[in-house]
Design a protein around this nucleic acid. Structure first.
Lengths: 226, 226
DNA sequence: ATTATACACGAACATATGTTTGTGCGTCAA
DNA sequence: TTGACGCACAAACATATGTTCGTGTATAAT
């Protein structure tokens, strides 16, 4: 159970490479691929150091099977990023921008296209309500203008991309006439749309349907205190 | 992009096997292993159906590389369980109870002892601020009494167990004389403690230090809209 | 009947890949 | 010196594993 710093430079490089490779491709590298990347001429040297890493408690090996490697201990200097297997475990959600009262929400047309980018946040399953990675996105809230909806500066809101809403839904709405973006509970009245703050001590807003573009439904909010 | 139910029984079995195998061993199965498990006599049949799964949008294949498989779409009926790669990924946090204005926070003495229980919530790393599983716990907020601190009924607050606080910290405090629990920003003044709501439109509370037991520091809040 | 298509089988093939063996080069202790 | 040990290299070896080919059997469309 050696500490990471006690490993040789070569072994640290190998670990990092294996980690990144597995994260990016979904399966571990072969011995020869490790050698190539870490400038090791001979496969036996890779094999030798792999066994060292097993002894040090970082690796599991399955004998005789190709790519039979598994990193079983956290190593510094690597980013977790995307999951190897999809599922209702944790999901990465594209953090596509920010929301503030005075500016429209600008959404890239194709959220799925965002997949290759770096701006991601990991969201626990309870907060996703069953929706998939591609239909969900996240925004950072800027300013205190959403305070009547119990959302403050720095909060991250997770939304599902949709243009309609049911009564009672919390939605992100763009009000063209007011040049306002807001997060409110949606209620369709006979002649207007009522946007109801989450905090009872604030008054609802009434807008004409033509002055209310729904951008998405709010699924959840995450806040971190510094 | 076929739905899971449109796949043949054989293909569904293959997907599930690949998923479980990868989850349990850390790397994908070989073609022959898939065939053996799914009662397929010929490797070419496995190969054929793997390509079908690629067409259906469930799988990625890396040509010529052994075990070059990656499941890229969630499939029903499998449990995520352990992560393939270790890391500062998600952590389970004990959900030890609830907090409401009228009742004290009751914390089990040993949070670590709670580990075997079922009441857990998974928290993304950003919200833990580097603290470990044993020093952190979570509470469900009941009632609207924390509304001045931008926290509403149903919210889950993650706290670090501690009895002191620095100025500006958001803390969970039990006020014995008032029989009140509250979440506020903590400020030590010359003669009293000021408990400042997060929402500027509410007034601070001043209490005597003897009437303020700090239970923990609030690290983050999670909210899910139904 | 004919063609096309989806799916399945077995066998042969090519090679990607883990394993082993022999050797050499340092450092350190006896 | 000597020997042990950790680490590295190259080459040969054995096999695990992806790929391809020829064939067969249904079912549906023409």
């Amino acid at each position: 159970m050696k500490a990471f710093e006690e490993l040789s430079t070569r072994q640290r490089n190998m670990l990092r490479f294996m980690y990144n490779y597995t994260r990016d491709r979904g399966f571990p590298p072969s011995i020869r691929e490790i050698g190539e990347e870490c400038d090791i001429g001979s496969t036996s040297v890779v094999n030798y150091n792999l066994n060292k890493l097993v002894d040090a408690g970082y690796l599991q090996r399955s004998g005789k099977v190709s790519r039979g490697l598994r990193i079983i201990r956290a190593i510094p200097g690597v980013s977790p990023a995307r999951r190897i297997l999809p599922g209702r475990g944790f999901q990465r959600v594209a953090l596509v921008g920010r929301i503030a009262a005075g500016e429209p929400i600008s959404l890239p047309d194709d959220i799925a296209h965002h997949i290759d980018d770096d701006d991601y946040i990991e969201v626990p399953p309870q907060l996703l309500r069953g929706f998939g990675e591609t239909e969900v996105f996240a925004l950072t809230v800027r300013g205190d203008s959403m305070i009547d909806s119990m959302i403050q500066d720095g909060d991250i809101v997770v939304l599902r991309r949709q243009n309609t809403a049911d009564n009672g839904d919390m939605v992100a709405a763009w009000l063209p006439e007011d040049s306002e973006t807001t997060l409110k509970h949606f209620y369709r009245e006979t002649d207007a749309i009522r946007l109801q703050p989450a905090n009872q001590s604030y008054e609802p807003i009434y807008v004409h349907p033509s002055n209310c573009e729904i951008k998405g439904r709010v699924l959840s909010v995450m806040r971190s205190y510094s």
